Amino acid sequence: MASFPNTYTHRKVADTASKSCEICYKPSTSVLVTPENKDFFFVCPGHLKDRGFCSPVIDEAAVTAKKKKEMEAEVERVKQEFEEKQKKKKEKEKEKEKGKDKDKSESKKDGDEDEKSEEKKKADSTVITSTEEEPRVFALKRAFYQQRLDKKRNTEIAKRNRERLQNPNLFPQVPKGLP
């Protein structure tokens, strides 16, 4: 009887493959699976938020990598904005040198303001989409983990007993000799 680690990965299944939650028996499409698929069970997403049932396992390396990626994206965005501003300044200086009409420059400024507002909206939308996502790896509390181990152990024992009953050598033989 091999035990399995107390790390469960949260996965979703299709609506047609939903089964009852292990705790409340309501239909659920969320499954907790151990590495190498040694154990799995269906659970409601609400139970995953319950601190008495399980706690999320936070991968520090992944969190730092994600923060670093977000910072690099932010730096790149700021660099692009700065370069665009520098280009616009150069264009304005060229226009002033050429002595263009004021009406054209005012309409150009209005267009620049519209572009800036659109860029801000895009930046805001990227911030909203990169909100905190739900954790995917969980560790069950001791009582629930022990319950899973006991259930797995009992199923293995029942399987072994069924195999023994199928074996004809398990039962004693009728004596063949005279007493």
Rank of each mutant, 00 (worst) to 15 (best):
A123H: 01
Q173E: 12
Q146D: 08
S3Y: 14
K12Y: 15
I157E: 05
K89N: 05
A65K: 10
D101W: 02
K102Y: 07
G52C: 06
R136F: 04
R51T: 08
F53E: 00
T16S: 14
E95A: 08
T7H: 07
K151E: 03
V174E: 11
K92Q: 13
P175L: 07
H10L: 02
E115S: 15
E119P: 01
E74D: 10
K87L: 09
Y25M: 15
K68W: 03
H10M: 12
A123N: 01
D110S: 14
S105C: 06
Q173R: 15
K116W: 10
E132T: 12
V78G: 13
D110Y: 08
N167C: 02
D112E: 04
E93V: 15
C24R: 03
E72N: 09
L32Y: 00
C21A: 13
S125V: 04
T131G: 10
E163W: 04
K152L: 14
A17Q: 11
S18V: 08
E81Q: 07
F138C: 00
A123K: 05
D59W: 02
E72G: 03
A139M: 01
E106C: 12
C44P: 03
K26I: 06
P179Q: 09
Q166Y: 07
K38E: 11
K89I: 13
S107V: 09
